[in-house]
């Protein structure tokens, strides 16, 4: 008989503490300085799953703790409209995700430009994330591109296998789980190694381990994955 798990797990929301920085430590450091009050603009770029959205939302979470007014604007979300940026320049910190999605759209570019100007007239801070470096985003408004490129630009590097093990262990530890290195390494050889897949699997393992009252051992994980090898 299985014990039903109560939904009391810590929600896996994005915070700096659960992010394994690895080669991206300088970028994380620069973001943390921003939330502590340093002014400026930062451009983060990297492939999908490099951790851009996690870092932006972690920054927003930290801003909430520090009493810094902020907003996260996912421009890749088709429901967003340029009018959504109005008045956001009054806030202290804005995180814009998937900025490349609005490149060449005149209304969007003009709205973002205006947001930039308003934000920096009041000493605000801006973090922009994209899948390309500023020059490759394809903005038609070159003034916007050059302004967004005027801050520090960081490429977020994908995690190596070794770093993925550390990242999984860090994420697990933050959720109160002990994930032995052996188990993390086993996971990397059995499933797609993209962080979103790995972290979603960790979520599943967490629930099943709680239900089965088991530790995250290789045999348990093998059972969950239905791996007979």
């Amino acid at each position: 008989m299985h014990q039903l798990s109560l939904d009391v797990q810590l929600a896996d929301y994005a915070v700096f503490e659960s992010f394994y920085a690895g080669e991206n430590a300088a970028a994380v450091f620069a973001l943390q300085r921003l939330v502590k009050g340093e002014q400026g603009v930062v451009w983060l770029w990297g492939n999908q799953d490099a951790g851009k959205s996690h870092l932006l939302q972690a920054l927003i979470a930290q801003a909430g703790i520090n009493g810094v007014s902020s907003a996260y604007l996912p421009l890749g979300d088709a429901t967003m409209q340029p009018g959504m940026l109005e008045g956001m320049g009054e806030l202290e910190l804005i995180c814009v995700d998937d900025v490349q999605a609005i490149a060449t759209n005149h209304d969007w570019e003009a709205a973002l430009f205006r947001l930039y100007e308003e934000l920096f007239q009041t000493g605000g801070r801006l973090v922009v994330a994209a899948n390309v470096a500023p020059g490759g985003a394809g903005f038609s408004l070159r003034d916007l591109m050059s302004r967004l490129a005027s801050g520090a630009t960081f490429r977020l590097h994908a995690l190596s296998d070794k770093d993925s093990v550390f990242a999984l262990q860090k994420r697990a530890a933050w959720r109160g789980l002990n994930l032995p290195e052996e188990t993390a390494s086993y996971l990397l050889t059995r499933v797609n190694r993209s962080p979103s897949v790995l972290f979603a699997l960790l979520d599943r393992l967490d629930k099943q381990a709680l239900t089965a009252q088991r530790k995250l051992t290789v045999p348990f994980v093998r059972e969950v994955l239905g791996d007979q090898s």
Binding site: A30, W43, S150
Partner: peptide
Amino acid sequence: RELEGALRRLVANSAFT
């Protein structure tokens, strides 16, 4: 502006390391 961007990146890395 892009010159500034490069300088800021240098400064950020130097502050970190």
